[in-house]
């Protein structure tokens, strides 16, 4: 028994199942993430990590099981539902619009509209307000990003990642899911992203981190959930295990159900 139970769960999934045709992609997967906790979601390719992320972020609603946000049972039928419930996902491809500037990307589908009610009705954008807000939220993440009017396509990989994470946090998310945030980054930029993850979890955000990098997991995460062929086979505290143990779970050589 650990101290997690004393904390408040931000996201709980119970017995989530998902089939694609004849393939059982997920079977009775259950775990929870507490506020301010960073949980690693591990598993080999095809173990069901991406499917689980898609279920939670509303891209593929699950066939069975429950999703609870802040102990309230919810239905996540679309990405818009997930965002409204406070679940933000930083996708592997970041889901940024290359030609848009930083501010426009930060507020994508969360645009601030003009204060004038008539213009609001027309969907008139308040670009000035969005720039100011963007400045604030990037500062909050200690991000060193150049000009806010710079197009995303002209930023480095780490900077883009920072923008994508800032977008997730910016919209007041309780839960941020990150799919391989450092996969395409160099050592220094990876370290910056790790700092960002620590920073947002210290601000009370629950983080679900998908990664193949054991080093990264050991450094940043509090706990790890391991999937094997669609089932969760381990749910362990990082401080209790070694990277070798984790690899053992991933390959199925070790099995431990919490």
């Amino acid at each position: 028994m650990s101290s997690e139970e004393l904390k408040q769960p931000a996201l709980t999934v119970k017995n989530i199942s998902k089939r694609f045709g004849g393939i059982q992609a997920l079977q009775n997967v259950s775990f929870n993430i507490n506020k301010g906790e960073v949980v690693a979601l591990l598993g080999d390719n095809g173990a069901g990590k991406s499917t689980l992320v898609r279920c939670v972020s509303g891209i593929h609603p699950p066939d069975g099981g429950e999703i609870l946000v802040n102990d309230q049972q919810v239905t996540v039928a679309s990405p818009q539902d997930a965002r409204e419930l406070g679940i933000e996902t930083v996708h592997q491809d970041l889901a940024v619009i290359p030609d848009f500037d930083i501010a426009a990307n930060l507020f994508l589908n969360r645009e601030i509209l003009h204060k004038n009610p008539l213009l609001r009705l027309l969907g008139w954008l308040d670009n000035k307000a969005m720039r100011e807000q963007a400045q604030i939220s990037l500062q909050r993440l200690n991000s060193k990003v150049p000009d806010l009017t710079e197009a995303i396509s002209r930023l480095s990989g780490g900077q883009r990642q920072a923008v994508a994470i800032a977008r997730a946090v910016n919209s007041g998310a309780d839960v941020v899911i990150m799919d391989e945030p450092t996969a395409a980054l160099g050592v220094e930029q990876s370290a910056q992203v790790n700092e960002l993850i620590n920073l947002i979890s210290s601000q009370g955000v629950a983080v679900l981190l998908i990664s193949h990098n054991m080093q990264h997991v050991m450094e940043t995460c509090d706990r790890a959930v391991v999937l094997l062929r669609g089932e969760s086979i381990a749910n362990v505290k990082i401080s209790d295990v070694t990277p070798r143990d984790l690899v053992g779970f991933i390959t199925g050589a070790q099995r431990l159900t919490a």
Partner: peptide, 12 residues
Amino acid sequence: GNEKGARAMGIS
């Protein structure tokens, strides 16, 4: 500019 990205951000 990025159909999948826009959809992931909840744009219809």
